[in-house]
């Protein structure tokens, strides 16, 4: 039988590595995952924020950031983000 991996287990395995976070809105984040909680609020380090606007994609560099789990849609482990 195939071994199951629960979603939160998968995120736990990503701690310390790069992750790409896509929000419900037109916003994306990439950075190194430092930790998360049961609500999937996340703490990221060396973060790049991508904001998709009608004028194009806007990039913002951020230091350590706490991301509210409320608006997170999808997580892509190991990815350097939309530019990769």
């Amino acid at each position: 039988m195939a071994t199951q991996i629960l979603p939160l287990e998968l995120i736990d395995r990503c701690i310390g590595s790069h992750i790409w976070v896509i929000m419900k809105s037109d916003r994306e984040f990439t950075g190194t995952l430092l930790g998360f909680d049961d609500f999937v609020n996340m703490v990221l380090e060396d973060v790049t924020e991508y904001e998709t606007t009608p004028q194009g994609r806007k990039k913002t560099q951020l230091a350590q950031t706490l991301l509210n789990g409320n608006n997170i849609c999808m997580l892509i482990p190991g990815s350097a983000g939309p530019d990769s």
């Binding site: 701690i15 430092l34 930790g35 998360f36 909680d37 951020l62 706490l66």
Partner: peptide
């Protein structure tokens, strides 16, 4: 877990922060 959101928040009290709303 030392990098958890709770620890982060405890660590930033008293510091300069940027809070961005969904808006």
């Amino acid at each position: 877990m030392s990098g958890s959101p709770t620890d982060f928040l405890k660590g930033v009290v008293g510091k300069r922060v940027i809070v961005r709303l969904t808006s």
